[in-house]
């Protein structure tokens, strides 16, 4: 996320990228099932996709079965007696605690394992929230068109021109008592314009397609044209984008927590929050930051790999 420092030019670039994405995948369903089948055939043998999918499946399994996998209770201060604030604030690895404990004497490994739950919740709900908002705005803009479209898209453009992380900070900072849900809300909101623009782009392409014209000439009413013809045929690129957004929302959530805008209650561990709390000990005990960071990177990588290969597989131009 290094590029989000340079203001509105980056916003333009982002817009162009989203638009090109909409174009490249919006025609994907010209051949219906056969195209999906061929996409699946390609994915099955695509190493990148398989790696990504494996990571994600493992991550989801880990999150579901975390309470049973974790060796200890993540909030129990089992090694509190070893914590010496002056000389040795962080108990090191020992028998039963392969990664040692955190400054509150809680088992680090158990906290990492259980932390996957919150990370997954944040990622999924933030993405779903963004998807919902984006679908609503995009459908309104692409479906109704005219001044509604212009109005919505100007708002979306303004949102896109603000660096997304900065906006997430501002939204999260509005709340006096941050919780996990503030983080989710903040990240959902910053994803809305991306989804909205993407959906609107492919819906516009659909609007000018022959089959929509055919429906109009049949005398089908406007609402069914939008919901039965334009929307279903425009969802492809949005779904692909959702996979990619999952990765960035996990990273963004971590960033918010890192900066103290996340959930202050650390009894329920979360990777970003663990990373944030490790700041104080970064010089002396970097492993406290290292482990959650690695987890975040691997999971984000998993979603990115899957999303990218999905997009490539569904892009008719890259078909052989």
């Amino acid at each position: 996320m290094s590029e989000n420092t340079s203001g509105s030019r980056w916003g333009d670039k982002k817009k162009a990228k989203i638009d090109s994405l909409a174009k490249s995948t919006s025609k994907k369903d010209d051949e219906g099932v056969s195209l999906l089948q061929s996409a699946w055939r390609r994915l099955r043998t695509d190493v990148v996709f398989l790696i990504g999918a494996t990571i994600i499946v493992l991550f989801i399994l880990l999150a579901i079965f975390a309470p049973w996998i974790a060796p200890h209770d993540p909030s129990a201060q089992l090694l509190l007696d070893q914590v010496r604030p002056q000389t040795n604030p962080v108990p090191g690895p020992q028998e039963g605690f392969p990664l040692g404990a955190d400054p509150a004497g809680r088992d680090l490994l158990s906290r990492l394992i259980v932390g996957s739950q919150q990370t997954l919740i944040v990622g999924v709900f933030a993405t779903l929230g963004g998807l919902l908002g984006g679908l609503t705005l995009g459908t309104l803009a692409g479906g109704i068109g005219g001044w509604v479209d212009s109005a919505i898209m100007r708002v979306v453009d303004v949102m896109l021109s603000i660096p997304s992380l900065l906006m997430a900070f501002s939204i999260a900072a509005v709340f006096a008592n941050p919780t996990q849900w503030t983080v989710i809300l903040a990240i959902a909101i910053i994803q809305v314009p991306i989804f909205a623009r993407l959906l609107r782009g492919s819906m516009l392409a659909q609007r000018h397609s022959d089959h929509v014209l055919a429906a109009r000439s049949l005398g089908v009413k406007p609402a069914p044209i939008v919901f039965r013809h334009m929307l279903p045929n425009s969802l492809g690129p949005v779904i692909v984008q959702a996979t990619l957004v999952l990765a960035t929302s996990i990273i963004d959530a971590a960033a918010l927590s890192f900066l103290g805008l996340g959930n202050p209650d650390d009894r329920q561990p979360e990777w970003g929050q663990m990373l944030g709390k490790a700041q104080d000990y970064f010089n002396t005990y970097p492993h406290l930051a290292f482990y959650p960071a690695i987890c975040i990177i691997i999971v984000a990588l998993g979603f990115t790999l899957m999303g990218e290969s999905l997009r490539e597989a569904l892009d008719p131009k890259s078909r052989r």
Partner: peptide, 11 residues
């Protein structure tokens, strides 16, 4: 229409 495939909703 001219394009028989494009004028039929693929879904």
């Amino acid at each position: 229409f001219q394009d028989p495939l494009g004028s039929l909703d693929p879904r």
